[in-house]
Every structure is written in C-alpha cells, then in structure tokens.
Design a binder for these strands. Structure first.
Length: 138
DNA sequence: GCCAACGTTGGC
DNA sequence: GCCAACGTTGGC
C-alpha cells in the first residue's frame, strides 16, 4: 500500500477541521498541479497519508485515510482536475516539524524537503515508519 | 512581508 | 513549440 502526504495551510483547511469532519471525511479539492493530480489518481481506498500543516506550524500533525478514489473536482471550472475523499484517522501526539525532518539524514530525500511546493506527495514506506515513530505513534 | 522556485500562460 | 512574463506557493 502506498503512503502519501497531504499539505494544507491551516488557515485554509486545518487538522482540527479534518477531525471535525469525522468518519464521513471530506473531499480534498483545490489541486491544480499535474504532478499532484498524478498522486491523487494513484490513490486507493484504505491508503493512508500524513496531514501536514504548511506555513503555520510546518509539521506533520495527523494521519488521514483515503475513503473515496479519484473523481472530478467540482470546484475546477476547467474540468481538468479531480480529488479524493479523506477522513482523519488519528492525531500525531508529537507533531513532526519540518525542522526535525530536515535534521534527520534518513529523510533528506523526502519530497517535502526537495520539492516542498508539491501539495500532494508520495512517501516511502521507510519515511512513513520513521516519521510515525518520531511523532510518537507505534 | 520578502523572495526563490516553479508551474502556467500566451505571444510569436 | 519556444520562452518570457506572470502568478502562486511556502519557507524564512
């Protein structure tokens, strides 16, 4: 199963709002980048990803799960982009900050470090396991 | 609030 | 189809 990272500015859509959306989850709309779209299209139900706060916080704060695969994004008037639905799974007890990720040599190849502007990113199994551990899960 | 990096747009 | 100009993102 693939692992992912979803980036959101808390002022736009925060982890607290994701938690409040509950088990029914919400659509992850607004992706307007083809590389990010490619990630969304590859996602399957049940796959999990990190929820990362950009700009404010700059940390992995939660785990989300894909509950609906790729379908058209109704907020995209061009009709070119789509989205998935995600639900909050659990909070990360100790948010893993960007600083902490950058300080960890095993994470130096993370997309978050090398292409920080990509809003939906693939995460390797090793990165997934390490960040979970750093965050106090497992 | 600045600015570097990067994606997209549009003129040619 | 190239590339300059522009807009956006996101770290600092």
């Amino acid at each position: 199963m693939a692992r992912w990272l979803f980036k959101s500015e808390p002022s736009t859509w925060s982890w607290d709002q994701q938690v409040a959306a509950g088990a029914e989850g919400t659509f992850w709309n607004g992706v307007r980048n083809h590389l990010a779209k490619k990630q969304l299209m590859a996602m399957q139900i049940g796959e999990q990803g990190f929820f990362y706060h950009s700009n404010e916080g700059k940390a992995v704060v939660g785990i989300v799960e894909v509950i609906r695969p790729y379908y058209p994004d109704h907020t995209d008037e061009t009709g070119r982009f789509g989205m998935v639905d995600v639900r909050a799974v659990e909070a990360v007890p100790h948010p893993v900050t960007l600083d902490a990720i950058k300080a960890e040599s095993a994470l130096k190849d993370m997309v978050l470090v090398n292409n920080s502007r990509l809003s939906v990113q693939p995460v390797t199994e090793a990165e997934w396991a390490l960040i979970r551990r750093m965050g106090g899960l497992d």
